[in-house]
């Protein structure tokens, strides 16, 4: 049983890190909450903030321009995150299994190539992909032309702009999640596969009956991290599309910057940030709850 002395020691040792977290995480969160209840221009001191209660939140869910733009940005953000996860997780499992199987030749090379994309800064990725996606001069459309597929509008069309950014995100992040999956696969004892093989299980059955169930924890971590990364998307939007066309790529991080800094509406932007935080907490809690439900079953 832990003694009071041990508790004090633990507190003492934790104090520096907890103190720093308090300063750099909790205080900004509390400050953002406080600002979300005020009308405040970001170019003025906090003392100039004027109390407006829940009026900023009310505006976010109104039918006025502010509310429409916010809800579109929120919807775009979650569509972007959902599509990113839907593509990233299966692909990282596929590549993880390939890379993990030493029998397949060239896995070291594949692993290097996959992870290399994660090392490239997103800003550079965004600039390069904006040129690749160019509707008239871009190599992607030229490559499609070799297969008889006509030029695609990519970033220039409201229907394809967001998914084009998702492809860019998947390309950059895939290596990282593949490495996570490989790490998860190494934790599965070979004896489990041997036992299943003795029972007659083969490739696809092994994947669905052994690999995926035993990768649940790793995949949960991947989903949560991919979700958080996707919700923080900013660089490709700021560099390439600036939220357009017609707001189809306007995601919340970019919109918050636009409202908070360019338009100087700090209180409103804080209300958006608080709403995003609450939405994110709700989604992550839902993911954990679903996972726990699966465990109980």
């Amino acid at each position: 049983m832990r003694t009071a002395r041990q508790n004090w020691w633990a507190a003492g040792l934790l104090a520096p890190s907890v103190g720093l977290i308090g300063v750099f995480v909790l205080i900004p969160i509390v400050l953002t909450l406080w600002l979300s209840l005020h009308r405040w221009s970001t170019a003025t001191p906090f003392g100039d903030a004027e109390w407006v209660g829940l009026r900023n939140f009310d505006a976010l869910f109104s039918s006025a321009l502010v509310g429409r733009d916010f809800r579109q940005a929120l919807r775009n953000t979650f569509v972007y995150a959902g599509l990113s996860i839907a593509l990233l997780i299966p692909l990282s499992i596929l590549f993880g299994v390939i890379v993990h199987r030493a029998a397949v030749r060239g896995t070291t090379f594949l692993r290097t190539v996959l992870f290399a994309t994660y090392c490239v800064p997103m800003i550079a990725v965004a600039i390069v992909w904006s040129k690749l996606y160019s509707p008239t001069e871009g190599p992607v459309n030229q490559a499609l032309g070799w297969f008889g597929i006509g030029p695609q509008p990519w970033l220039s069309d409201t229907g394809t702009a967001l998914i084009s950014l998702v492809f860019l995100n998947v390309w950059q992040q895939l290596g990282y999640f593949t490495v996570l999956v490989v790490a998860g696969l190494t934790q599965i004892p070979p004896s489990v596969y041997e036992a299943a093989a003795l029972d007659g299980a083969r490739n696809v059955k092994l994947l669905f009956k052994i690999t995926l169930p035993l990768l649940r924890r790793t995949l949960l971590f991947c989903v949560v991290i991919a979700l958080i990364n996707a919700i923080q998307v900013f660089e490709p939007v700021a560099t390439i599309t600036q939220g357009g066309p017609v707001g189809s790529t306007n995601v919340l991080t970019y919109h918050i910057r636009q409202v908070g800094i360019e338009r100087s509406q700090g209180g409103l932007a804080s209300a958006m940030a608080v709403t995003l935080l609450l939405a994110l907490m709700a989604v992550v809690t839902l993911v954990f709850a679903l996972m726990r439900k699966g465990d109980d079953r």
Partner: peptide
């Protein structure tokens, strides 16, 4: 619409 989009540097 596809031929007239701009990027952050007012090029594109």
């Amino acid at each position: 619409a596809q031929m007239s989009t701009a990027d952050a540097n007012t090029t594109g």
